[in-house]
Design a binder for these strands. Sequence first.
DNA 1: ATCCCGTTCTGAAACCTTTCAATGCAAGGA
DNA 2: TCCTTGCATTGAAAGGTTTCAGAACGGGAT
Lengths: 346, 346
Amino acid sequence: MSKRSATPRNARRPSVKDVAERAQVSLGTVSNVLNRPDRVSAGTRERVERAMTELGFVLNETARQLRMGRSNTFAYVMLDATNPFFTDVARGIELAAEKADLSLFLCNSDGRDARERAHLEHLQQQRVDGILITPVDPESAELERITLQGTPVVIVDRATTSGSFCSVTVDDRLGGRMAIEHLVDRGHTRVAYVGGPVSIGQVRERYEGACDAWRDAGHRDTDLIHVQTEALSVEEGRVAGERLAGLPKRARPTAVFCANDLVALGLLQQVISTGQRVPQDLAIVGYDDIAFAAGAAVPLTSVRQPRQALGRTAADLLIDEVNNPDHEHQQVEFTPELIARVSTLG
Amino acid sequence: MSKRSATPRNARRPSVKDVAERAQVSLGTVSNVLNRPDRVSAGTRERVERAMTELGFVLNETARQLRMGRSNTFAYVMLDATNPFFTDVARGIELAAEKADLSLFLCNSDGRDARERAHLEHLQQQRVDGILITPVDPESAELERITLQGTPVVIVDRATTSGSFCSVTVDDRLGGRMAIEHLVDRGHTRVAYVGGPVSIGQVRERYEGACDAWRDAGHRDTDLIHVQTEALSVEEGRVAGERLAGLPKRARPTAVFCANDLVALGLLQQVISTGQRVPQDLAIVGYDDIAFAAGAAVPLTSVRQPRQALGRTAADLLIDEVNNPDHEHQQVEFTPELIARVSTLG
DNA sequence: ATCCCGTTCTGAAACCTTTCAATGCAAGGA
DNA sequence: TCCTTGCATTGAAAGGTTTCAGAACGGGAT
């Protein structure tokens, strides 16, 4: 640990006024140099620019926004910044925003309602031009209120019954169906669904799709074991693994469909650590096909979602909503794809 | 795809002035209700608050900032938002910021210089109170300029020779040494270091630490094979694996130390896919100990860094720099820890 | 009745930028 | 010489908030 002196805090920052003074021109001219350089003669422009660098002028964006009423900034409120699925979605948004010359702020609600509310409040006060969000609760009145108050919102990866937003989703019900159909095809007859809490729309939808396929295969709904988790995390996957191991042998499933890859990876670790073989003793299907699924202890079969496209599309919808006066809200739905790997193929 | 009508864009948003008018009080009183409610009589306060909700008043933070000259907002410019190491660091920062009642914006430079510059420029213009950053190039004059112009900067996970910032690092040289010492202890005599580009400080430091340990073990520097990668990603890890496989059998290393876990995981996948056994045919050590390291095809030995503590400490330093008039810059260095798993233990 | 004090409320100034109507100026045409 | 035209520049107003010196008011003490 070494110590040094602190950054200067005293000096007021130079404003356009200071620049104008130094360059011997008026405020308006400085502003013109900044925003319409073509309207300024070469000589004065050069003089003004010199003054700017000499003073170390940094435009005060908050003042500009105040005057202009828009910020050219979007924000994406992520549900869980440590889940690679969402960072990939964020990347899609980022690229679209960059192309449109917009700044993007990422916020992390960390799955907590209170944190999400705080972020939304702050973003609205910051007057961002629009908000993309994967909400904790898509039906929250909060979101509706925000659009009513004039900040457009696009829902990412969540369905919503409200007509106040654009939304971009993947057909989770279909994804759930694909996972179970795959397991049924492989001959499994004792199958579990691992995921929770059911307050998460995805968890419900994937479960329903799973049930659909399960019934279509001639089974009874109630035969599909549902192991609830507290969250969709690696840790919860491990816990679920222990729960399964606790079942009497003949009630134990031969295959498991997990609500996402984090849960599947946790489950996989727990299962392997107890000496069971995957898929011989237990087949596992995950969801999302994050980059680490293919590199897992046993490469994971997973339902892939078009993550970047999801983000890009959401951003494009928001851009349209902001710029296009006769924008109409759209609900875009993508289709998932099953990627079969060793964890079910053996 | 269904369509609906757009969000209202026309209506000007209500300002304190509108609230004042409606509540039959002056501007100042509304401001007092907002900022010093105790100085306002219960009756008027209630009246003003009612007016606010009736009008759907949302405070204009940009105007407030303009007036106050501070924003109560930090930003963290991440080097790679898809690398779990950085999202964990971000989480540490987030928690510290939340505790101090500060908003945090995350930006992703994606390892690109241009994107980083754009973000920094924008943040500075936004007048954030401080910037945390894992820079593409810690020696960049850009960073120095920003502090000179009055925005404090804290460097996260990168060393810097400049005395203008606080910084928080982990002893990478020691980490590199630990990795190689571990491999030497396990009896390996043909070892490779995989990582690049060398323009990344980490890549260099870990390599140097590795060389130190290698020499101490009685080997010649030049015997430590250095396989360069273009980036620290899973994909580049795979490529490196192919390169190694291309070596003549007797020149091939029996153990590899990778500059981070993403590279190690990519390498691991490639190696396994060609039918080699880990660690019998090739032992692998990673770096960072991200959550997915333990759950890899072969659980990965890795050098763990205190990720959240890194972020938390960085945020605390920045908070001190912003609030404490006689703040002094500090360089905090954490110590890494080797976590041995199957990928080297067999 | 007068004075003083504390509480509550007021309104103008300041923060920094953009915009726009108006001004100044030089060159070209009549 | 006088007008016109077009370009370069100016300066005040506006945008929404906070601050602060001071006004208004009510009540208690004298």
